[in-house]
Design a protein around this nucleic acid. Structure first.
Lengths: 213, 213
DNA sequence: AGGCCGGGTGAAGGAAGCTTCAGTTAAGGA
DNA sequence: TCCTTAACTGAAGCTTCCTTCACCCGGCCT
């Protein structure tokens, strides 16, 4: 985990005994809770530690500073989501576009929703991590997987695949974020699933010269 | 200005003489500069004041606290953008869907780009204003205008206009944000314009039962 | 000329947080 | 059982900022 994390954000020490593993998890979870209940600017290391049931000192044993903690939480979440997208893409190679869309949109939304609270909490953090490449890099991975998949769509010929994929991904991420930031109510999620599929499908079919099936 | 701003965020005093108007503008501009060069969490009132060429005291003469300043900057920008969308919608009543899309997407992207730096700087702030209704409220206005426009599209019958509009707006905002956060390079903006139009058009035509002409 | 007032100044008080470190507690092997 | 070492503790130092307030400047009216 975190093999590509910039030096400044690397974890301080790796859990050896079992209990410390539990502690790290508790800290992660606490960070999310605090993020949600107090907001990003009122997240203090002490608060996180208290919520996790440990002392601040313990927190600093695993993370060199506050930012590193947030980075780790973010990383864990993003990895989960891209992994889901990559899997869906891999399993849809060669299928017609509508099937691809079904698979990808579903797994994407599912991954986000499985820990909707985390997603929601992290959007706020993301802004302050702007300069960091983590997010950029993760998006890159997702787009690569999508492009690889679309290239195998039977009968489809994308004029500018790069751009199409970029747009597709931005639309996916953007609309999902929107729903999240408005509370992710079940009916809103249902509508997201339905409409996002429609949006993606109509856009892709239109972009694919050869009609995509 | 700011007639709907919550009491806690209201400006302290309204400029009377000309020079104070200049000062307020300078402070606004400085806030944006600092936001861009230092990031939201390193924006300090002193830094903003210095950059604006005034002293902190002056800043506090117009805004009761830091948040109020950021609120004001945000408000000004959002108003500009929604106004542009509302105008485009108003002028496109009764036109066929592709024409509507052309007008709206163009004015939206234009409005964002006219002060791309502001847009970019404010995304970061937005996260910390999550609880505030300003953003929600502005989105509402935009969606209302879009819905009113789409209702007049000849030959189109939208099954679930509410949802369609919500999705459309989320896609517009989401993709634009994406481009912004990646630096808004000219070619990226060009691609945004082109692809967003295509995406919106194909989605809307597909959503409109009656084909929308 | 005198004084009123919009506008401006910036040192200093005080709160809030991050991070450290000297010291304590608990595991697990010998 | 004893000892080494991982894990944990939390008060205190230090820094950073927000915000205030007592005071200054200069135009304009009488």
């Amino acid at each position: 985990m975190g093999s590509t994390a910039p030096a400044a954000f690397e974890a301080r020490k790796t859990p050896v005994q079992a209990r410390s593993g539990v502690t790290v998890d508790a800290i992660h979870e606490a960070a999310i809770q605090v993020l949600l209940s107090h907001g990003p600017d009122r997240l203090t290391t002490t608060r996180v530690a208290t919520r996790a049931g440990v002392s601040v000192g313990t927190l600093y044993q695993y993370y060199p500073h506050k930012q590193a903690l947030l980075y780790a939480v973010m990383e864990r979440h993003l990895n989960r989501v891209v992994a889901a997208v990559e899997r869906a893409c891999g399993e849809s190679l060669g299928k017609p576009i509508p099937a691809m869309v079904d698979a990808v949109i579903q797994s994407f939304v599912d991954a986000k929703m499985e820990r909707a609270d985390v997603s929601r909490a992290l959007y706020a953090v993301a802004a302050e991590m702007n300069s960091i490449s983590l997010i950029r890099h993760t998006g890159e991975r997702a787009r690569t997987a999508l492009a690889a998949m679309l290239r195998t769509a039977p009968g489809a010929r994308f004029e500018r695949l790069e751009e199409t994929v970029q747009m597709l991904y931005a639309a996916m991420a953007g609309t999902t974020r929107h729903v999240m930031e408005n509370g992710a109510r079940p009916e809103a999620v249902g509508m997201l699933r339905r409409e996002l599929r429609m949006l993606a499908e109509s856009y892709l079919l239109r972009s694919a010269d050869g009609r995509g099936e």
